[in-house]
Design a binder for these strands. Structure first.
Length: 251
DNA sequence: GGCGTCACGGTTGAT
DNA sequence: ACATCAACCGTGACG
């Protein structure tokens, strides 16, 4: 059960069981997708992510699965422009991500894809600075497996990265990336705290990432293995329309 | 309880 | 300009 409302210029918007607003048939905003990946990478479980970001579990699972498989947080193609060639786009995205990381221009591609890959490669570079010591590993087993799964796929990209030489190409690339970020729309303003991580030294990146995640979570969500269900959540102004929604939120 | 998967209805862009 | 089709989207339900 979901309420629907018409948003001019957007289409048929709806509210899911978690209370999140979505537009049926349209991909989630990029910053939401990025937050999903960010939260997953720091060990937050998908169920917590779905609750926090008010995105359905299936969507979180789908986005994370795609990210782990392709390294892309972007929706397939609808907004990218080539809706009917998306599968080919996915296969080429991986190649182009690799090319981005070695500083080689991707094979012939549309301008939209270039923009996408600049952002994605930037994201991948960000995640490369994630902590690798066991002290920073996610606590639970599922997150740990996902964590290693990501790093497994990350190495696929990172092994093509040039050695950390901030003198020449890296600086130019970061400058270009920053210029691209400035040219992008307001959506990326929400991601500045995250994107800016890659320009920082790796020693402080973990704290910055943690800080950015805390910002995302607004200091309200803590990684817990057990959720309190009884008092505050039920007594809040969140009305439960039916038992199904109650069950869904409580799970 | 948490997760992966699938059907469904919807949107988008190409033909 | 309009209709049709295929691909993709997120949601919700199921196992």
């Amino acid at each position: 059960m979901k309420s629907k409302l018409y948003v001019p210029g957007v289409g048929q918007a709806g509210v899911n069981q978690l209370g999140g607003v979505f537009v049926n048939g349209r991909p989630l905003p990029d910053h939401v997708r990025r937050q999903i990946v960010e939260l997953a990478l720091v060990g937050i479980r998908p169920c917590d992510i779905s609750r926090k970001l008010l995105v359905s579990h299936g969507c979180v699972s789908k986005i994370l699965t795609r990210f782990y498989e392709t390294g892309s947080i972007r929706p397939g193609s609808i907004n990218g422009g080539n809706g009917r060639h998306s599968k080919k786009t996915y296969s080429t995205r991986i190649e182009m991500n690799k090319c981005q990381n070695v500083g080689v221009s991707p094979p012939s591609s549309s301008s939209s894809n270039k923009i996408v890959d600049n952002e994605e490669s930037s994201s991948v570079r960000n995640y490369h600075s994630f902590p690798t010591s066991p002290d920073h590993l996610p606590s639970n087993s599922y997150s740990t497996s996902r964590y290693f799964s990501f790093h497994h796929h990350s190495q696929f990209f990172f092994q093509h990265q040039p050695p950390p030489n901030p003198s020449s190409d890296e600086i130019d690339a970061s400058d270009d990336a920053s210029d691209d970020d400035e040219d992008q729309d307001d959506e990326d303003e929400d991601n500045n705290s995250i994107i800016s991580v890659d320009t920082k030294p790796s020693t402080s990146s973990s704290s910055l990432i943690k800080h950015s995640i805390e910002n995302i979570l607004s200091n309200k969500v803590t990684i817990k293995t057990k959720r309190p269900l009884s008092s505050s959540s039920n007594s809040s102004n969140n009305e439960q329309p039916n038992n199904k929604r109650q069950k869904s939120i409580a799970c």
